Amino acid sequence: SIVTKIISIVQERQNMDDGAPVKTRDIADAAGLSIYQVRLYLEQLHDVGVLEKVNAGKGVPGLWRLL
C-alpha cells in the first residue's frame, strides 16, 4: 500500500542520514506522488502516532520522523 511505502521511505532515509528527519518533498519524490497527496498521508500517520512532525510554520518545509 502507499502508506507502507511512505513508512519504508522515511525509515530508509532516516537510516541513511543518522536519524535525521525527512522532508515532505523528498518523501513525495521517492513515492512518485505530489507533495499534497503525501502530506495527507503523513498527517494521517501522525494522527495515529506513527510519525512526528519535527517542525511547523507557514512556508517551512515539513520534516518528519518515525516514532
Rank of each mutant, 00 (worst) to 15 (best):
I2W: 13
I2K: 03
I2S: 03
I2Y: 07
V3C: 14
V3M: 14
V3I: 14
V3D: 02
V3Y: 15
T4Y: 14
T4P: 05
I6H: 00
I6C: 03
I6R: 00
I7F: 05
I7V: 07
I7R: 03
I7C: 05
I7G: 00
I7A: 03
I7Y: 05
S8C: 15
S8G: 10
S8F: 13
S8R: 14
I9T: 03
I9E: 01
I9R: 01
I9L: 05
I9C: 05
V10M: 15
Q11H: 10
Q11W: 15
Q11R: 14
E12T: 11
E12C: 14
E12W: 14
R13L: 15
R13S: 04
R13E: 04
Q14L: 04
N15W: 11
N15I: 11
N15F: 11
N15Q: 11
N15H: 10
N15C: 15
N15A: 14
M16E: 08
M16P: 03
D18R: 12
D18Q: 12
G19I: 03
A20D: 08
A20E: 07
A20G: 10
A20I: 06
A20K: 13
V22N: 01
V22L: 05
V22T: 04
K23S: 15
K23N: 09
K23H: 10
R25S: 12
R25F: 06
R25C: 07
D26P: 02
D26R: 03
D26F: 08
D26L: 04
I27K: 00
I27E: 01
I27N: 01
A28S: 04
A28P: 00
A28D: 04
A28N: 00
D29T: 12
A30W: 05
A30Y: 05
A31Y: 02
G32F: 03
G32C: 06
L33D: 02
L33K: 02
L33I: 09
S34L: 04
I35N: 15
I35R: 04
Y36K: 14
Q37P: 01
Q37H: 09
V38W: 01
V38L: 05
V38F: 01
V38T: 14
R39M: 13
R39T: 14
R39K: 11
L40G: 08
L40R: 12
L40M: 12
L40A: 10
L40Q: 10
Y41N: 00
Y41R: 02
L42I: 02
E43K: 09
Q44G: 07
L45Y: 00
H46L: 11
H46S: 13
V48K: 13
V48M: 15
V48E: 14
V48H: 11
G49R: 04
G49L: 03
V50E: 01
V50G: 00
V50C: 08
L51T: 01
L51E: 03
L51V: 09
E52R: 04
E52Y: 05
K53P: 05
N55E: 09
N55Y: 14
A56D: 12
A56K: 09
A56M: 10
G57P: 07
K58I: 10
K58N: 14
K58S: 11
G59T: 06
G59V: 04
V60K: 14
V60R: 13
V60T: 13
V60Q: 15
V60D: 14
P61K: 11
P61N: 15
P61S: 13
P61L: 12
G62K: 10
G62N: 15
G62W: 12
L63S: 11
W64Q: 00
R65G: 04
R65L: 08
L66Y: 12
L66I: 12
L67W: 09
L67H: 11
